[in-house]
Amino acid sequence: MTRFARLAPAGAGRTIVPQPRGRRFQLSAALSWPLVLRNSTRIAALVLGLAATGLMPSGARAEDKLALTLKDHVFIPAELTVPAGKAFSIEVTNEDATAEEFDSDDLHVEKVIAAKSSGTIHIKPLKPGSYKFDGEYHDATAKGVLIAK
């Protein structure tokens, strides 16, 4: 509104006429902008997603797959070793009758594995070191460590 006032000739601020016009413009904008806004956000997200995925389609890389089994709320094996600097995946098989959440702050992963089912977790290339993981619902027993060398 301040812009209007500045552009208008001196004394125009006292007349009421320009004001309703400005206000009507805002109201129509209020009705139409949320849609444009939501679409543009979606488009931006899509562009970002495409840019991110364009270079490397998922599944195109050959990945080593490690097997990890959860039985009686214990991971078998409790220690996995992988080569550092190479992407890989872990197939977690949950043999228990209850679901478990595979959780690792170190690996930046959280994934629910339903009862009597399995799930694959993709891990990006790791620096050498050890990475802890656990089953969040039974973290007293379901513990393990992944070692990248």
Partner: peptide, 20 residues
């Protein structure tokens, strides 16, 4: 983070900092 976990986003997935 979920898209990275799904291997959908594969760009700039290196850890930037560690305040753990």
């Amino acid at each position: 983070a979920f898209l990275e976990q799904a291997d959908v986003i594969t760009l700039m997935t290196d850890t930037v900092w560690d305040t753990s």
